[in-house]
Amino acid sequence: MDIEIFPHRILGSDTTERLLNEIEGLEDVNRTILQGPRLAPESPDDDPRYAERRIITVQGKEIELKVKAGRIFVDLSEESTIDQIREICNEILTFGFDINIGTYIRTQKTVTDSIKYGNAELPDELIGMNDQYSMLEDRVTYIQKDGNDS
């Protein structure tokens, strides 16, 4: 089952890092997707005082944060995990949030997927993990969790 965490404000990189670390620390969380407006690509002309794009560390793994988190989709196995996530959000997202249950990560290959990947077997956990305009290696990061990939 999927849930959508809908913060009432668009998250900055520090809060995103904290939230992801907490959520990824839960045993039951399989996949997490950040969705939101893109951060501007890094440019040498950028003033470091205002730079927003940076590398965040989630469970020891370095990930380049490319979007401002507007919505966070989490793939879970058990409903009881939602309460744990709600507690985490209560603590970190002090400005308010909603948690909705539904299907937010698609489960079937699309025509675009077939064009992109051909007849290659796409593992189920990679379906719906990126948008149609980007490549998986640019978007998806694996985090090792006690023998399980996530």
Partner: peptide
């Protein structure tokens, strides 16, 4: 009409 940034700023595509 968009959600504000975490620091309270309104979205601006030109920053």
């Amino acid at each position: 009409s968009l959600r504000l940034d975490e620091n309270g700023l309104m979205f601006d595509m030109l920053r």
